[in-house]
């Protein structure tokens, strides 16, 4: 083992800089070392274009971690974590998303009603 090029796989679990982006720029693309990563939901959109040519896979945010746990349980049950922390977190996450969607719908409904009221008023 003399350098990064001798690695069989690089997995970067990171948030912010330096992180997965730097591993793509300075390791994966330069040395042709297979690269995979895990990142926060905020940073995920900037990594989507790199899949599948420059990164083998991307585990983004809690959702990605829950998907990873599910895939691990299906493919390698012997490595399945007992607490399934990410999968358990998806319940409150989904509830929070529904609340956000409800607020968006309420806000838009309010806007439409206000416009209709403005049109009707002389």
């Amino acid at each position: 083992m003399r350098g990064l090029g001798d690695f069989g796989l690089i997995v970067s679990l990171s948030a912010g800089q330096p992180g997965l982006k730097e591993w793509i720029l300075y390791a994966g693309d330069v040395l042709d070392v297979p690269l995979a990563g895990g990142c926060t939901g905020v940073g995920a959109p900037q990594f989507f274009p790199y899949y599948p040519l420059q990164i083998l896979g991307l585990m983004s945010a809690l959702k990605g971690a829950a998907e990873y746990e599910a895939a691990l349980a299906r493919g390698h049950p012997e490595f399945t974590a007992a607490n399934q922390a990410a999968t358990r977190g998806m319940g409150p996450q989904s509830a929070a998303h529904l609340v956000i969607v409800a607020f968006i719908l309420l806000g838009n409904a309010g806007l439409v009603l206000r416009r209709l009221a403005r049109r009707r008023s002389p």
């Binding site: 926060t40 939901g41 905020v42 940073g43 995920a44 959109p45 983004s60 945010a61 809690l62 959702k63 977190g89 409150p92 996450q93 929070a96 998303h97 956000i100």
Partner: peptide, 11 residues
């Protein structure tokens, strides 16, 4: 995706 990430932090 950014909102999802923030909610995950809150969770």
């Amino acid at each position: 995706s950014a909102v999802m990430g923030r909610v995950a932090l809150l969770v």
